[in-house]
Nucleic acid binder design. Structure first.
Lengths: 186, 186
DNA sequence: GCGTTTCTAGACGGATCCGTCTAGAAAATA
DNA sequence: TATTTTCTAGACGGATCCGTCTAGAAACGC
């Protein structure tokens, strides 16, 4: 009946989401149990299942929030006045920076795609993110550019993420950024 | 004392590995329990733990076998007389074919890297495969070619696998194959 | 202060996980 | 055939998983 949820509930929900994000991303989704999430969040189990009907719902919400945070971050780092190739390069360099920061555990969305292949809500959240990612790249290179170039840049981005995950070597990621810059400039 | 293991043991071990490969790859490593593997393989649990001291050892052995099978397949598909760019393209097209065959569930090694981040033996098997992969690419483009090109092709390969996993659209994989061909030819 | 509503704390169930262990069958050797 | 060795069948333990449920505390309106 109230137009907005009471604040205490929002807090619980936010604590759950923030804790889930930390644990799911750093230790893996399947390796993180609901009991661990609620314990670290300091929230009752009943509340958890009040806000999220299942673990799958919590995962999907975590991914949606991760997608929002990602878009905010790359938008903040972006400089709309710079040439497209530079903007693309910067997108990749953000990954390298995260590797350097020691907080990179792979792309949350490809991780989830592999860890939760049988969760429709999770797959839907991944698909939503992929559309946002593609739209962002397309917006950088320009709406008049072929979809083929956008696809190639996304392939490079996925490859950069795999490189980052498997090597944790930011120098290699920066080489991919240079590669992407060349492709975007051509 | 015998120079070779009795055949019945080899059979059990092979059945375990073949079954593990099927289940781990199609349904995921964490989603597949040891009990399921031994039931489908028709092997006693004690035998399983005779051949493999732990699930981690079984996973690592599965990955090593997968790496051998992969190298055999791409070597068979390869034509050493063809130009490097064509050979590279064919490597990528093999992925597209597997997508078309409906038996592609992602790269077994990146899947394992995400599913088993805390298993040293598994990570070692992944690293072994990555070295073989890189050596194969380098052998195609020629030992005199820069490592930078090899790295770029591997990034493309990883990107193609992610595309294949998330879209299951072989047409997109074929576009990446074309992309890789151009990069290899330049 | 009182009654109503909402949330919390955590026990519990049923299932599954990995790995061990015992008991008995099968195979090998003589 | 008798003995020794090796493997199998599957029960079992302890831990963890997700989700439900009950009982009681806290917040709210009056």
């Amino acid at each position: 009946m109230a137009p907005e949820t009471p604040q205490i509930r929002v807090t619980s929900r936010m604590k759950l989401l923030a804790t889930a994000a930390d644990l799911f991303y750093a230790h893996g989704i399947n390796a993180t149990g609901i009991d661990t999430v609620i314990a670290q969040a300091g929230v009752a189990k009943g509340s958890m299942y009040h806000h999220f009907p299942s673990k799958e719902a919590l995962i999907a919400a975590y991914l949606d929030e991760e997608a929002d945070a990602w878009l905010d971050r790359v938008t903040e780092l972006d400089d709309a006045d710079a040439p497209p190739a530079v903007r693309i390069e910067r997108l990749f360099l953000a990954v390298a920076d995260q590797v350097d920061g020691g907080t990179f555990y792979g792309c949350p969305f490809t991780n989830a795609a592999i860890e939760c292949p049988d969760m429709p809500d999770v797959q839907a959240a991944i698909a939503r993110y992929r559309r946002v990612l593609r739209a962002h790249v397309k917006e950088i290179v320009g709406a008049d550019v072929t979809d083929s170039l956008v696809s190639r840049l996304i392939v490079l981005y996925d490859g950069a993420l795999t490189t980052a995950k498997l090597t944790r070597d930011s120098a290699q990621v920066r080489e991919v950024a240079q590669f992407a810059r060349e492709v975007a400039a051509a």
